[in-house]
Design a binder for these strands. Structure first.
Lengths: 197, 197
DNA sequence: GAACTATATGACCGATCGTTCGTACACTTG
DNA sequence: CAAGTGTACGAACGATCGGTCATATAGTTC
């Protein structure tokens, strides 16, 4: 174990990177091992052996996407002051994450959540628990803003977190579908008003 | 042309009905002609001949889903008084449409919009224009509520329509993914507050 | 240098995909 | 009754799917 990556680790990384890009556009079911292999100039069986099954590849892709999401949204927001500033920073980073197409198909999780919300199995479960974790995190930042006196003391944190995230997600959906950036302005306006009033 | 349905019309209808149910769970790409054929006890080639291609089947499914949507959401709302009551009725019917699982996978259009938002082609275009039409309709009802004096005169109708629909869509997504009805309560609360304040 | 492990390959499997084609049956029209 | 049209079928197509397996190569360990 020296500092360099084992050969397999690197192959795994580039494969997952391509997989999450593909999945944000075509869905997790749209990923095919054969397509990944030809695009990355690897063999089907080589990629297959790295993950063990297509479902395990999908699960690994979800995990990989979560790392990317945290790096672009959660981690940067941590540098803002606790309370309302941090909450606002988180939402701003989320909108930039969507608008800048960190994933070419917009928010990865909006895409795969809609794809797997009504299915069963390990992939559904992984997506659901990831979304629940995100929801709890958002709610905690709202609570901290309330406790800091930046938001009214009688604020229902879970309710407000739902409303704020609803606006951000709608901006992502509308923007990707229509090809316009106007929805991001709408979400920014609405979020600002909601936190001010 | 008497009153009865031609044989082909009826086959087409039941096929599309099953197709939209399937698509709301597995996506429009999840529809396969072979699967439809075996479930409906028809031949693959018979179904194929009815639509001409898989893409045309998907387009027909979108149209069929739009009819169902209008029957459950748009038409019933028309009986409410113009202005705010009609707008509220529309949103309530939308939430019931989602919650009662008119489509087993929740809102059909939330599912297929997320699936095709970043793709190209006729299916994407059909979904996009359908969603734009819905957005304009919602905005018009907001405008009518403003003109009736039920909402503040300085209301930005497009902005408010975006916010209201964002809340409803978020309820659908969260409810289907989590299997809980709490998101519908959240959306109802938020919509009520937004229209009151 | 020998032994071992991790990594990757190509050939191949049965299943299913969308699609094509020739044909048979049912109905309407003349 | 004959002809024509709409509807549906079964067989088959090439392509691709996820997955298996024996094998070759590269790196590490002793």
């Amino acid at each position: 174990m020296d500092g360099r990556l084992a050969r397999g680790e690197e192959t795994r990384r580039v494969t997952l990177q391509r997989a999450v890009e593909l999945a944000s556009v075509e869905g997790l079911e749209g990923i095919t091992i054969g397509r990944l292999a030809s695009e990355l100039e690897l063999s089907k069986s080589g990629i297959f052996a790295l993950f063990g099954s297509k479902e395990d590849l999908q699960l690994a892709a979800v995990e990989h996407a979560e790392k990317i999401f945290r790096a672009h949204v959660v981690t940067p927001a941590a540098t803002a002051d606790p309370g309302l500033p941090r909450l606002v920073a988180l939402l701003e980073h989320w909108l930039v994450y969507s608008k800048s197409r960190v994933f070419p198909g917009g928010c990865f999780f909006a895409a795969v959540a809609a794809e797997f919300d009504a299915r069963r199995g390990r992939v559904h479960d992984a997506i659901r628990s990831g979304q629940q974790q995100w929801g709890r995190f958002l709610e905690r930042l709202v609570t901290e803003a309330v406790e800091a006196g930046h938001l009214p003391a009688d604020t229902d944190a879970a309710q407000l977190a739902f409303e704020l995230f609803a606006l951000a997600r709608a901006a992502n959906t509308d923007a990707v579908l229509s090809g316009s950036d106007v929805p991001y302005e709408r979400a920014t306006t609405a979020i600002g008003n909601r936190l001010r009033g």
